[in-house]
Write a protein that binds this DNA or RNA. Structure first.
Length: 595
RNA sequence: GCGCCUGUAGCUCAGUCGGAUAGAGCGAUAGACUUCGAAUCUAAAGGUCGGGGGUUCGAUUCCCUCCAGGCGCGCCA
């Protein structure tokens, strides 16, 4: 809040200085990135600092200290600032007045005002995440994507954006058939031995899905569908025979069972989606064959592009009996097939259709959260988006966030995982073991772009290795103090005024107040960076500062003479509690009143 | 072979799209509960920012190169 204000006055001060030099450019033209503001960690460099004078010096051909001086004289008259100092080669260090800081505290305590200053422009965003294939339960890797995507959605909403979240279900293609065959085979095994030749023939040389969940589904089918005669079984398992009747049934039951389990897990994890989008629906349209089919198909998606009806789609061509998209123009290794020579669409083609659909729904920005193993997919998707932009006549903005691997650690050793072999730790198992709060928080302590070591032993510990408890404890501590105050019948103001807070004079108090003010700033950085971990880091830091304060200054005084001081400190505590609760909620973590 | 991510204290990691003396936690060391919750706090210790070049007034940050680890390179999804 103070940061936002300071940015404004600094901009106008520098702008008038630049005009005074006889230059016609806008400040934004000279430094497109804007004025850089920093929060110095060291004492003595002010509360907010800027090296902007050094950035402008070579552009304006003026000495940095001179620019700094101009900036200083332009802002110093504001009562919000206690001092503005120029240091070193040309840093400008701002220190806020006590009144300005107390006013921000008053705002934090005002329940009618939001803790968070909204972004300048409200955008319509579509956030797609998790999108795990419905061929098996969510594992720890999906869990990280779920925690990240959900927290990102909450943060983007908290700063005022209009966010829709979506889960793309890959319910088409070979994998679904293989899923059906896998459960069918397992179901068969529940009745009698299956000779290897029969298994091989049935699976058509493919690799079946394994794992307990396949057997459980088979068991479920056995219970609901019963046994079949040997003759019926034989036809059910014959790849050339009766599979049309049986296989879709197995596929359907398997998929809906797995998807139901995924939704249960997400629900328990506190992750919700506005919509689930089925890939299969995209394959129903259109008919046709060859490059003509893909063109009409893409056009049908882009109904807005009526002017293109009879033109060839750019970058789409036919070769080797298949239809290709020229993705190499945007750095892909090779062009990619859209329509196979057998007339079926590829996964990529469907994904393009899906994104075309997104674009037409009118989102300003699409954000896709993918597992890191999909990074090779980025160039072709960017190429596709470019083609779609031309086709649909509007520029589409796609941002892709890759979530790196999760390494589970137990007893100091990595837990080996292999999805193919059905050996993996499910999200559900982790939630059973360490709980929702710790799991979510730990997933968000590192940048999504770095691989994460998830230590199951430490996740269960209640130590500083497990910062979720540290933060929750600070919140519980605030609540505990308030309970004490109530028990002692201390009169806490319902509506806080500056005079209630004037007693806050300690350096630790000032530090806390200005740190509370930074909450909004941290959240407002997220839409650009798409990084969520600064929020967990901020909360951990805030909790630490409060614990520190608590140990050095008694909040509830024994001495009735100190009532004024006590009220101020209670106010500060309430403010810390509000920000901690708000921050934890934004991460999808609970803020218990007692632990 | 090519591409993406990573390499910072013993360990796990921050480091704000080039800025001031590189920061936390854990672990190890020494301390603090007759007082608001010790799931906490305090103190000191710990660094050739993977190696080497380059650009710059200034590089952990940008460029090149090498080394190490992870992941990916289908008319699979």
């Amino acid at each position: 809040m103070l940061e936002r204000w300071l940015r404004g006055v600094a901009e106008s001060s520098l702008s008038s200085y630049i005009q005074g030099l006889g230059r016609t450019e806008d400040l934004r033209d000279l430094i497109p990135k804007g004025i850089r503001l920093e929060f110095p960690k060291k004492e003595g460099f002010g509360e907010i600092s800027t090296p902007v004078a050094m950035h402008l010096a070579p552009i304006l051909k003026q000495p940095p200290r001179k620019i700094a001086e101009a900036l200083r004289s332009g802002v110093i008259r504001h009562p919000q600032l206690e001092s503005v100092e120029i240091a070193g080669p040309g840093y400008v260090n701002f220190t806020f007045s006590r009144e300005a800081l107390l006013e921000t505290l008053e705002q934090v305590l005002d329940h009618s005002s939001s803790l968070i200053v909204p972004a300048d422009t409200r955008k319509k965003l579509l956030l797609e995440f998790v999108s795990a294939n419905p061929t098996g339960p969510l594992h720890v890797g999906h869990g990280r994507g779920a925690a990240y995507g959900d927290a990102l959605a909450r943060i983007l909403r908290s700063v005022g954006h209009d966010v829709e979240t979506e889960y793309y279900i890959n319910d088409a293609g070979n994998q679904m058939e293989m899923l059906g065959r896998s459960t069918c085979l397992a179901w068969r095994r529940l009745q009698r031995e299956v000779p290897p030749e029969e298994e091989e023939r049935f699976l058509k040389g493919g690799t079946p899905y394994k794992g307990d969940y396949i057997r459980e589904i088979a068991d479920f089918i056995l219970k609901t569908e019963g046994l079949l005669s040997e003759q019926e079984m034989a036809s059910a398992l014959d790849p050339a025979g009766n599979e049309k009747d049986y296989l879709p049934k197995f596929t359907h039951i398997s998929q809906s069972t797995i998807m139901g389990g995924i939704k249960e897990d997400l629900d328990r994890f506190g992750v919700s989606f506005d919509a689930f989008f089925s890939e299969r629906t995209l394959h129903l349209e259109p008919a046709g064959s060859g490059s003509d089919a893909i063109s009409t198909w893409i056009r049908r998606i882009g109904q807005a592009s009526s002017s293109l009806q009879d033109e060839a789609v750019p970058d789409v061509y036919e070769a080797d009996g298949a239809v290709w998209l020229r993705t190499t123009i945007l750095g892909d290794d090779k062009d990619r097939v859209l329509l196979r020579s057998d007339g079926r669409l590829t996964y990529f083609a469907a994904d393009i259709a899906y994104h075309a659909e997104k674009i037409q729904r009118g989102f300003d920005v699409m954000i896709d959260v993918w597992g890191a193993d999909h990074h090779g997919y980025i160039p072709r998707m960017n190429a596709a988006i470019r083609t779609l932009s031309g086709l649909l006549g509007r520029v589409a903005d796609l941002r892709i966030a890759l979530v790196q691997l999760v390494n589970l650690i137990r007893d100091g050793r990595p837990v080996s995982m292999s999805t193919r072999g059905g050996e993996f730790v499910t999200l559900r198992e982790v939630l059973d073991e360490v709980g929702v709060d710790a799991t979510r928080f730990l997933y968000l302590t590192r940048s999504h772009d770095s691989s994460l070591d998830f230590d199951l032993n430490k996740a269960r510990e209640r130590s500083m290795d497990n910062p979720v408890y540290y933060v929750q404890y600070a919140h519980a501590r605030v609540k505990s103090i308030l309970r004490q105050a109530e028990a002692r019948s201390i009169l806490v103001p319902e509506r806080w005024t500056l005079s209630d807070l004037e007693s806050l004079v300690q350096p630790e108090e000032r530090d806390l107040v200005r740190f509370l003010d930074r909450f909004s700033y941290i959240l407002n950085e997220v839409p650009q960076s798409l990084e969520v971990h600064p929020v967990t880091e901020y909360l951990t830091d805030l909790a630490g500062r409060y614990h520190h304060y608590y140990f050095h200054h008694r909040i509830l005084s024994q001495d009735p003479q100190d009532e004024k001081v006590m009220i101020g400190r209670i106010g500060l505590s309430i403010a810390v509690g509000r920000v901690l609760r708000s921050g934890l909620e934004i991460l999808g973590v609970s803020a218990p009143d007692s632990m």
